[in-house]
Design a protein around this nucleic acid. Structure first.
Lengths: 220, 220
DNA sequence: GCCCGTTCCAATGTATGCACAGAAGGGCTC
DNA sequence: GAGCCCTTCTGTGCATACATTGGAACGGGC
């Protein structure tokens, strides 16, 4: 792997996983020393971060990690909603239905994934990621993918703000099952409606202040 | 201005305006010599072009200008439609209505801009760009803007495939006037509907093979 | 005591040199 | 004569050295 790719991946995960907080300055010499690469590939990595919107050039003072807030979450969803709806509509009309039938069955069984302890939730997240990938593949539109990629990045960053909530995850699994079923039936209207339902609950949960002990948003 | 910015702007316009054709290889040494910058800023410019989707890394052979075709136009519009609709919905609910009332009046007068000879059409395109900027400002969503930017770039590239057609431009002006009027009234549903009408005609015209002498798409 | 100017420093922006990888062409062998 | 391998060469990837710009701190003047 190229050094610039490594630097980009490391910095990106550092930002997404909140090891680098908004406002932190990414000085070239400091980061190049920390990551063990030279300034040239590091500059390339910083440029990609800026293009992603994860960092912003600070006039004359390098780049700083960009801020993300609750208003920003609302803004992100204002873009995510039409994009995801467009994606599922395309996937419903173009996709291979068998794939989504199988995925729906997996989501129906997802309860045990979620209720199992520790690492099992990762399996659920992986399942969600697989559904996303299948939708992307079925939509078959590189421009749509290009538009969604930064949105998903910002979303992943917000997701790390809170821990997991089994209740919400279970509801999320049911919503995803509905989406998969709609795609399996090739019904674009139903798929879009199911996606709207899911995104509504997802955003609502994100905007709900973490009430009790750990009341965690799920944005998948 | 920085050398990397100059290189990016030059290469970008070269690609958008078809001085560089799809498949052309962008060799670092060659382009750095042509543009009068060193290899380092040129590499940065190439990376930005790749991020924009205007070029793609070709394994072991540098980056090549990416292809754009009629299927690609359809794909671009599949993303453009939901994004522009979302933008006008937000603009209708948030924007300052006076701005759009004034713009609607300008579009109503746009006939003379279009029918005037030569450079006058540029004034019309500038007017369209101003409407876009006002919609962007009214929507006030940086993530939406981030998603739209590459789409608009690809669109600008396609637009250069054909010359102007006064008939289509006049119809386009009327469609834009409707959008502006809907925004001025703060009616999100009407604004979206007007946008859908405009995009439908825009795409139809793009997909129509240039029939007579110069039957030129307008994608604004 | 405060404000403005100057100077120094640090960090970015740029250029160039070096090393490695992939491709193309030629030569050798079957 | 054709196919395969080796050599060479071009071009990218990386590192480092140099220039330039912006900022901060210190000193002088009001």
């Amino acid at each position: 792997m190229r050094a610039s790719d490594r630097a980009y991946a490391l910095l990106r995960s550092d930002i997404v996983e909140w090891r680098l907080a908004p406002g932190d300055v990414l000085a070239e010499v400091e980061q190049s020393a920390r990551l063990g690469v030279s300034r040239t590939p590091l500059r390339e990595a910083l440029a990609r971060l800026v293009a992603d919107g994860l960092a912003a050039p600070h006039a004359g003072r390098g780049v700083v990690v960009s801020a993300i807030s609750l208003e920003a979450v609302t803004d992100v969803f204002e873009v995510r909603l039409p994009l995801e709806c467009a994606a599922v509509r395309l996937a419903a009309s173009r996709g291979d239905r068998g794939v989504f039938t199988a995925l729906a069955a997996e989501f129906a069984l997802a309860g045990r994934l979620i209720e199992d302890d520790d690492g099992a939730q990762d399996a659920y997240y992986a399942l969600v990621a697989r559904l996303d990938q299948c939708i992307d593949a079925a939509a078959g539109n590189r421009y749509l993918l290009q538009a969604q990629k930064p949105i998903r990045t910002h979303l992943a960053r917000v997701r790390r703000l809170a821990r997991d909530n089994p209740e919400r995850l279970l509801a999320s699994a049911r919503e995803h099952e509905q989406i998969a079923l709609a795609l399996a039936s090739g019904n674009a209207d139903l798929a879009e409606a199911s996606m709207r339902v899911h995104l509504h609950h997802s955003l609502q949960h994100l905007l709900t202040p973490a009430g009790g002990k750990d009341d965690p948003p799920d944005t998948s």
